[in-house]
């Protein structure tokens, strides 16, 4: 952690309003985005943000500073969000296995050729992000297991490296990469099943 961040955190934990405001300005939007990405619920995400900043203020003084401040805050956010999700919405989550590609013994993909070559990527992004396509995408994200959503947001929205994400979620780099790839493939599959026929 940089000297500036260490100083900022120390002043915030000492109750200096200006320092806390700076931390909020820098991190609240990112904390909310990750919290929402994992919980998929605005009210839960708001509670996570409050809890995270409370932990920063209360525990910041004990932070050892081995990691970057942002990584530490992301880690708290991930843990609080996963705790908030514990036991909730399990019925929505599906096994990813049925959404991953299947293969013939020779290594070619199995399935109807028309489906295998379906390519909806030429559809304008604005169209894909509105109406029925958006609804399909949001529902598909909802169905991902929360640990996968955490990695997806950290990698594909915050654009952190796999090493940084591994440190934040407390897993190996290989596990992070596998989870990211499986999440993207599962989302792609659901989009293709719904959009592919019109491609």
């Amino acid at each position: 952690m940089s000297v500036e961040d260490r100083d900022l955190l120390a002043r915030a934990t000492a109750g200096e309003a200006g320092a806390l405001e700076t931390l909020m300005t820098r991190y609240s939007a990112r904390v909310y985005r990750l919290a929402y990405g994992i919980t998929r619920n605005a009210a839960d995400a708001e509670e996570v943000v409050q809890d995270v900043f409370l932990q920063i203020v209360n525990k910041g003084g004990g932070f050892e500073g081995r990691a970057a401040l942002s990584s530490w805050i992301y880690r708290i956010t991930t843990n609080v969000s996963l705790n908030k999700r514990r036991g909730k919405h399990r019925e929505l989550e599906t096994s990813l296995d049925e959404l991953l590609p299947t293969y013939l013994p020779d290594g070619h993909r199995a399935g109807e050729r028309a489906f295998l070559v379906a390519d909806w990527s030429g559809t304008p992004e604005s169209e894909l992000l509105s109406g029925e396509s958006r609804r399909i995408l949001e529902a598909a994200i909802d169905r991902l297991p929360e640990h996968y959503r955490a990695v997806l947001v950290l990698k594909d929205v915050d654009e952190l490296s796999s090493d940084e994400v591994a440190e934040i979620v407390g897993d190996s780099v290989a596990a992070v990469k596998t989870r990211l790839h499986r999440a993207r493939m599962a989302l792609r599959e659901q989009l293709t099943r719904r959009l592919g026929a019109g491609a």
């Binding site: 985005r33 295998l116 990527s121 992004e125 992000l129 994200i141 594909d156 993207r184």
Partner: peptide
């Protein structure tokens, strides 16, 4: 052809997630 289509849609999926999850 199937792998080219897979790559194109995989790449677009990534872009859509980036946009949709940037709340």
């Amino acid at each position: 052809d199937p792998c080219r289509a897979y790559l194109a849609t995989y790449r677009t999926t990534r872009a859509l997630v980036s946009a949709a999850a940037a709340v």
